[in-house]
């Protein structure tokens, strides 16, 4: 028996491919991830394609929140053959996907490009704080201050990996820092 050590909830990503028959080609990206969608966009006719870019700003909430109103408006008028292509950090991908589902799309209409960075969004299982851009484990929770082991168990609804206190059984334990892959 071949043992695959990966946790099954962790998403696997493949480069998006254009579905030529779509009534609307909708591209959504973070500003530094546009190059992942550029080749697909170039294949589209100008009239049938739209591209929304999320620019980092000072608004509260996630970057995807800043697009939410506009995305809902576009999707409310979109044909049923709409295809959505998303590129950015992993948390952003799932935020946009979740917004699209609540606007009536189904997963078959949505393609998420491989995340542009290995940095993760982290969910603290003790105080439910969400942290962005986590690159190594363990990571100190910005909410409760506990030292969290960053696990590979992933929740699509949160777009986040779970963090669990790493030294709860032995606070004296010496820990090594590991770069996340």
């Amino acid at each position: 028996m071949q043992i695959d050590p990966s946790i099954k909830s962790r998403p696997k990503y493949v480069a998006p491919e254009l579905v030529a028959s779509a009534g609307l080609q909708l591209f959504v990206s973070e500003s530094d991830a546009g190059h992942l969608l550029e080749p697909l966009y170039r294949q589209c006719s100008e009239s049938g394609a739209q591209w929304l870019v999320a620019e980092p700003g000072n608004a509260p909430g996630t970057l995807a929140d800043s697009l939410s109103g506009y995305l809902q408006r576009v999707l409310s008028d979109a044909p049923v053959t709409t295809r959505l292509y998303v590129a950015g950090s992993e948390g952003f991908l799932w935020d946009i996907r979740n917004q699209a589902l609540s606007a009536g799309l189904v997963d078959e209409q949505i393609q998420l490009a491989p995340p542009v960075t290995k940095a993760r969004r982290l969910f603290c299982t003790h105080c439910y704080t969400l942290m962005e851009g986590v690159t190594s484990s363990p990571h100190t929770c910005s909410g409760c201050g506990r030292l969290l082991l960053v696990r590979d168990h992933f929740a699509r609804l949160h777009g986040a990996y779970v963090g669990v206190q790493i030294n709860a059984e032995d606070p004296e334990e010496q820990l090594e820092q590991e770069v996340l892959q």
Binding site: I7, K8, T125, R151, H153, A155, R156
Partner: peptide
């Protein structure tokens, strides 16, 4: 296991951390 974290998951997702059984 945490309901708050696992909420909305599919059957195989919420069993994600269970070792060996997926392969079987």
């Amino acid at each position: 296991w945490s309901l708050a974290f696992d909420a909305g998951m599919s059957f195989s997702e919420w069993h994600g951390p269970v070792p060996l059984a997926h392969e079987m």
